[in-house]
Design a protein around this nucleic acid. Structure first.
Lengths: 266, 266
DNA sequence: GACTCTCTATTTGTCAAACCTATTATTGTT
DNA sequence: AACAATAATAGGTTTGACAAATAGAGAGTC
């Protein structure tokens, strides 16, 4: 008999338990909204302690696979995965990637241009009246004076999201969520200083018009031009910025003392 | 002085701690590869106990934000987010959504058609010789006789992934990962019964040819036809299936006893 | 002197047993 | 019948301890 030397497990118990339960959920052995045994029972069944079970459950809860409630009739339940939550998680992850500079500006810009162009075509074909209203409302907001940079950027995000929603395709929307939420801020942070805003709002207006008229090709052409216009502005803005302040390393002030918030000492 | 009545916190301590640390990582107050204080120290600083700190850290570890090592020079470190890991997480989440029927067949199919068409155009423009080789290798594999359904499907996935990779756009690749990995299996499970395979391989061959010749429009047209052909096959397959076995509710056998694997009782 | 081995200190991983707190079903009272 | 007190349940947290892994220092050997 061949003795296998790879049987011993080096991963943590909590990790293993989490993986087991996740697998059970993923392939349907645990149905949606099904109640898992309580923590003590789980600990006993797996032959581990309750804190370890809890670590495992926390991991799964962090991935939105389960939820817990206290009290009788409480317990741990398998959650129905909702597109919104998943989209949010994807966005967070993508934002982090973008933040660390995993992608180049050009990559992000090309991805935006191509995917949003596509969405415009589909949106023109499938948009509802409500979609048009939502987009028009954002444009009106963007035309207001005295809007803060953050508010303008947020409205911009919502406008582009509205286009995606107007495609009427949930699967596409899930993917695009990440693009819109995490790619736009990067491209927009430096832009819209002052009167770039009006040009952006005008572009949005024309795009809306084309989508309203069910002119998919026109809308696609317009948003492509809109985003490619961004590229020029972005490049020059970055150059200006680089010239203005030479490479600096963020001068960590009192980092070690303030990086973790301090509670009272009980 | 206005007393605020919404100050009391109803969320768990572990959750709060996780959120605080995540926020610190996200906006850069905790640098990549920086070492956090050890668990005891964290517990003391936050004014909570170590198991609670550990639950919080597990949550963050589940999101690939931190990693932990034992021993001296060990501890908890902020991880550099890697696109591969994020892509995998996105894929898992998307797979779950698809599995629960959150999206319709038509939605998924349209999303695939549109996004992959786009990728073909970009791939034709940017593909390298290595990309072409990878695609050719998969086609050769798909032409082999005696390939299992799983193996054929896996090769199909790799082929479509190769197209995405050939775009040379990492950001786009991240998004498409979810589409390819989680949308393809759904559309393919029922297909490729017997000799559909040859038609698929032929389609792949023509697409490769077009991409090799830098004919973006041609490649786009071909993959669109390829995927739209799938729609017909899929619809008829599903109808056949529905007719063959009437609505059944999966006859849970001994679910309650086997849903959670049982360890020995120590 | 250079190398290898062992030992130790540090840090995460796991455990046990208790207590706290939120939630709900039940019971009792009006 | 409606409402309020109460008990039971199950997750949330704490305390304190021990186990396991590992980097690095120090002892021993060639």
């Amino acid at each position: 008999m061949a003795l296998r030397y790879d049987e011993i497990v080096r991963t943590g118990l909590a990790r293993q338990v989490a993986d087991l339960i996740r697998a059970a959920i993923m392939d349907g052995r645990l149905a949606i909204d099904e109640r898992l045994p309580n923590e003590e029972e789980l600990a006993h069944r797996f032959g581990i302690s309750r804190p370890t079970v809890r670590e495992a459950l926390k991991v799964l809860a962090a991935q939105n696979l389960i939820r817990s409630r206290r009290g009788p009739a409480g317990g741990t339940f398998v959650t129905r995965p909702d597109p919104e939550g998943v989209a949010q998680a994807i966005t967070d992850a993508a934002t982090l990637l973008v933040g660390t500079g995993s992608f180049g500006r050009e990559e992000i810009l090309v991805a935006r241009i191509e995917t949003e162009t596509l969405c415009c075509r589909l949106a023109a074909a499938n948009r509802s009246a409500a979609d048009l209203e939502r987009m028009a409302a954002e444009i009106a907001l963007q035309r207001q004076d005295g809007l803060s940079d953050e508010d303008f950027c947020a409205s911009d995000v919502r406008f582009h999201r509205a286009i995606v929603t107007a495609t009427g395709n949930g699967a596409l929307r899930l993917m695009m969520h990440a693009v819109i939420e995490s790619f736009i801020p990067v491209t927009n942070m430096l832009i819209h200083r002052d009167n770039e805003r009006h040009r952006a709002a005008d572009s949005h207006e024309r795009i809306l018009q084309a989508i309203a008229e069910r002119d998919g090709e026109g809308a696609a052409r317009l948003i492509r031009r809109h985003l490619e216009g961004l590229r020029g502005v972005l490049d020059s803005a970055l150059e200006r910025r680089a010239a203005a302040r030479p490479p600096q390393v963020s001068e960590g002030e009192d980092r070690t003392s303030s990086d973790i918030p301090r509670h009272d000492d009980r």
